[in-house]
Design a protein around this nucleic acid. Sequence first.
DNA 1: TAGATTGTTAATCGATTAACAATC
DNA 2: TAGATTGTTAATCGATTAACAATC
Lengths: 209, 209
Amino acid sequence: MNKGNNNVSESTINRLPRYRRYLKELEQQGITKVSSNELGEQLGYTPSQVRQDLNRFGAFGRQGYGYSIKTLHENIDEILGLNQKYKMIVVGAGNLGQAISRYAYYQDKSFEVSALFDTNTALVGTEAGTLPIYALDDVSDYIRENNIDIGIICIPKEPAQAVADIIIDAGIKAIWNFAPTDLNVPENFPIKNVHLSDSLQTLTYQMKI
Amino acid sequence: MNKGNNNVSESTINRLPRYRRYLKELEQQGITKVSSNELGEQLGYTPSQVRQDLNRFGAFGRQGYGYSIKTLHENIDEILGLNQKYKMIVVGAGNLGQAISRYAYYQDKSFEVSALFDTNTALVGTEAGTLPIYALDDVSDYIRENNIDIGIICIPKEPAQAVADIIIDAGIKAIWNFAPTDLNVPENFPIKNVHLSDSLQTLTYQMKI
DNA sequence: TAGATTGTTAATCGATTAACAATC
DNA sequence: TAGATTGTTAATCGATTAACAATC
């Protein structure tokens, strides 16, 4: 049903979660259809852009009618890969690691963190909420034995590359990186950086204008 | 010394913190100069793009030599507004709020969180690390009395807009928003969203290709 | 001076917007 | 059927890349 996923611009991909969020909101309000005009107006895009974005993946609308919210939502879920579960681990059981481990599942039940890993012997063996904290040395075995999909990196920048190498070698399929550094990964390896400091710095830039 | 800050594309702004991070690394290694060629190669940009980006703000380089790392770093700091301190508060003292309140200062001493606010009476009066947690009702007075610059929003999406309205009304100068929703703010009001779920969804998109 | 590398103008490429025929 | 709105092609706009004169 969908067209191929390649050659879609990053800008388009980045807008998909926003469309999805707004569709969910409309759905909760009991609304069943929406036009590219309404969608664009709410999100600050032109109707053209909305239609171009969606059409990269398929013809989800109906002329003279608009888009059925339910089916559009389902299609976006499929495009983003949200129609399946993901097994995740967090490396780094500090404040941020513990917070993210709860946040992911709380936001969307498709994302389940099953364990955290740390080098700090004071933390190893304790629990973060209901999740066990294990020694970092055991992370490779754990990934292999439990078929973990996504590794979340929440450690300082110095050890981040070494940890990335280890978990990639153990067969992790993607990395969500919170360490304030850009990691070297194999070509086309799925990785997404959340550089909080970078974000804060573009905020202070805005404050100067 | 700097050219005006307006009309600079968002793409350029978003690259500045990356330049800055890499310059810091070189500085730590004791290296004193760098060319647009070297910078671009390391960061995956063309030399042209590096020079175009930097030249939006001034002529920081020297022909036949390259860029002095120290002065370029200083200039980028100034462009991003990092040559001053920022007073911050966090609204929402849950896991994420507590983690962010420590993270910001830990990453950069320019950013100092002085208090957290929450509606949860079990939290109010306790401490997050060394920081006090106050009742949300007191947030306006606190902002006014302490001249707070940046409000960090770490609460669920439903109450986020109301809280944004309150702290803007109290004179906050910028918002760093972690609530998974897009907030309505006055035109040109500085705001930066960190939509973690959106980020995770573009990661799972990558995993499908 | 000769070599290197910037600053900046021109060319290209890609993303956004506009337009309109297709069709529900 | 007439009206509305999509899907898609064409036009525009802006960002990236290339080229080169200026100059350290």
